[in-house]
Amino acid sequence: MFKRLMMVALLVIAPLSAATAADQTNPYKLMDEAAQKTFDRLKNEQPQIRANPDYLRTIVDQELLPYVQVKYAGALVLGQYYKSATPAQREAYFAAFREYLKQAYGQALAMYHGQTYQIAPEQPLGDKTIVPIRVTIIDPNGRPPVRLDFQWRKNSQTGNWQAYDMIAEGVSMITTKQNEWGTLLRTKGIDGLTAQLKSISQQKITLEEKK
């Protein structure tokens, strides 16, 4: 169930391209415009997507990853294993993690069937560096609404905000991946996880038929 919630949630996290980005210092504006741009692209490019579902990787690479804190999220997933990894191991892992996100997020976007969304009203940021933004996803086919909290983090150097995690039903996506990959990290280390991520990233994206 959580895996499905995570995939549905990713439908609204794909941010804007650099040329049309919203105010990078306001995570609420980023979330709002990102959702609108993403849904528009999914709707307008269905012919290309249906002809070649792996085209979704391109959308992810162009529109999402430049505005997601990939390395920060990847380091959180590694936890204690990050500090013990060599620079070469980290570089290989982050490259594999990025390719994994292209496949995983692309597969999530393949679930698009006309969903709509509501974003919580903007709250004062103050001096906060981590801000959760509640998004409610509404399914046109009558499924119950899904309420999610996207975690946005302020870059201490640039002042810009980027998304790095999502919490559904009190469970963090980062925590879920830590639990899912924990045994592999304990037995085969970061190299074993890197190899698995490379394998997963090679899987073809498949479209979910409308139910």
Rank of each mutant, 00 (worst) to 15 (best):
M1A: 00
K3C: 01
R4D: 06
L5V: 05
A9E: 00
L10N: 00
I13D: 00
I13Y: 06
A14V: 10
A14M: 14
P15I: 03
A18F: 15
A19C: 04
T20V: 11
T20N: 13
T20Q: 14
A22M: 14
Q24V: 12
N26A: 05
N26D: 11
P27H: 03
P27A: 09
K29E: 15
K29C: 12
D32A: 08
D32P: 13
A34Q: 02
A35S: 13
K37V: 11
T38P: 02
F39P: 00
K43W: 10
N44L: 14
Q46Y: 13
P47E: 10
I49V: 14
R50E: 07
P53K: 07
Y55L: 08
Y55K: 11
L56V: 14
L56C: 04
R57N: 15
R57A: 13
R57Y: 15
I59N: 02
I59A: 14
I59L: 09
V60G: 10
E63K: 03
L65I: 06
P66Y: 04
V68M: 15
A73M: 06
A73C: 04
L76R: 02
L76F: 05
V77A: 08
L78N: 05
G79I: 01
Q80R: 14
Y81N: 07
K83F: 02
S84H: 11
A85Q: 06
A85C: 06
A85T: 08
T86S: 12
Q89S: 11
R90Q: 04
E91W: 04
E91F: 05
A96H: 08
R98E: 10
E99V: 11
Y100S: 09
L101V: 13
K102E: 11
Q103C: 15
A104Y: 04
A104D: 04
Y105W: 09
G106L: 02
G106N: 01
G106A: 13
Q107F: 10
L109D: 02
H113S: 06
G114T: 09
Q115K: 03
T116H: 15
Y117H: 09
P121M: 12
Q123S: 14
Q123R: 13
P124W: 09
G126N: 09
D127K: 03
D127V: 10
T129W: 10
V131I: 11
P132A: 15
V135L: 04
T136R: 13
I138F: 12
D139Y: 12
R143P: 05
V146W: 14
R147F: 03
Q151W: 01
W152A: 05
K154I: 15
T158E: 03
W161S: 02
A163R: 00
A163W: 00
M166Q: 01
E169A: 03
G170F: 02
S172F: 00
M173T: 01
T176R: 00
Q178N: 15
W181M: 15
W181Y: 07
G182L: 12
T183C: 06
T183Y: 11
R186Q: 01
G189W: 02
I190Q: 07
D191A: 08
D191R: 03
L193M: 10
Q196Y: 09
S199K: 15
I200A: 07
K204L: 08
L207N: 14
E208H: 08
E208S: 14
E209P: 09
